[in-house]
């Protein structure tokens, strides 16, 4: 058995995955996707791998490489449809709404004027997010019309083409924390609460992590959210809405977990490795949609 760890930088998480594979006697290679060329007509250089774990930080790079591997029939964690959905906040919201999973009220507009209308319709404060990207970057809380006009004009003028899609979301007045639940297939394996004085509670921005019980509604709604985006092994971010209860903010497909292992006591890299090995044992499979997780 040999597993590829696809990466564009090796962080603590990728190291832990490598160590977890090694501890099980499984051979692995770190594959830097910046250095490879994939010949769609010749999978033979890659057939030494039984499966791959995608850990690329770049959404577009991950999607491109995983699509090729899946096209050949190689099992990849996570599948491209999960990457495609989770890597785009609009695609995630569409999937959650379609599946009936509670998510903050979201409106989308593709021009400056309609963006202002979308913000006004959602009401103040509203949150403007880029549809691609993570770690709480370039999130804007819009408190009034003046701010809305300024931010929309700045995004339209200075932003890349991706910023021409205005993704406007209800600001959830959460109780100083949000929740992150790790899901593997049909099971919520553990979760943390991320607490912060700032309205962005991401641990990448200094949020503190404490363990939470995922046996009840929190786990159930997280599994539904994971299914909505295509399954696999993901991290679901939830907000506690003061009126509507639990609501899903986003789902992460190459989640960071270094700050969640110690508080939860759960071997998250071990669970990712076990999930991957389960797929790898099935071998390469050609299906019209790639390999099903």
């Amino acid at each position: 058995m040999r597993i590829a760890i696809l990466h564009s930088r090796i962080r603590v998480e990728e190291r832990l995955l490598g160590e977890s594979l090694a501890a099980r006697g499984i051979e692995h290679e770190f594959v830097d996707v910046r250095e490879i060329v994939l010949d769609l007509h010749d999978p033979s250089p890659w057939q030494r791998f039984d499966a791959a774990i995608d850990r690329c930080v770049s959404h577009s790079a991950a999607l491109a490489v995983v699509r090729v591997f899946e096209g050949w029939g190689m099992p990849v964690v996570n599948p491209s449809r999960v990457i495609d959905t989770c890597g785009d906040k609009l695609a995630t919201s569409v999937a959650l709404v379609r599946a009936g999973v509670p998510t903050p009220r979201t409106r989308v507009a593709v021009s400056e004027n309609s963006a202002i209308a979308a913000i006004e319709a959602n009401g103040y404060p509203a949150v403007l997010k880029p549809t691609v990207g993570s770690w709480g970057r370039l999130l804007s809380r819009v408190n009034d019309r003046d701010a809305a006009e300024a931010i929309v004009e700045h995004k339209a003028t200075l932003g890349s083409v991706q910023h021409s899609v205005f993704y406007v979301q209800e600001h959830v007045n959460k109780p100083g924390r949000d929740l992150r639940v790790f899901v593997a297939g049909d099971e919520a394996i553990c979760g943390i609460a991320r607490e912060s004085e700032h309205w962005i509670t991401n641990t990448a921005r200094g949020g503190r992590a404490t363990p939470i019980d995922v046996s009840g509604e929190v786990g159930a709604i997280s599994v539904r959210a994971a299914h909505a985006v295509g399954g696999g092994i993901v991290a679901v971010d939830l907000l506690e809405h003061p009126r509507d209860g639990l609501t899903v903010g986003e789902v992460n497909h190459t989640m960071e977990f270094r700050n969640s292992i110690e508080p939860t006591g759960v071997d998250i890299p071990g669970r990712i490795v076990e999930w991957t090995l389960g797929l790898a044992r099935r071998g390469w499979v050609r299906t019209p949609e790639g390999v099903r997780a």
């Binding site: 930088r9 770049s58 959404h59 691609v132 990207g133 970057r137 890349s160 992460n252 497909h253």
Partner: peptide, 10 residues
Amino acid sequence: APEVEEDWGE
């Protein structure tokens, strides 16, 4: 290390 790019994330 390279600067964080727009589509980087989890």
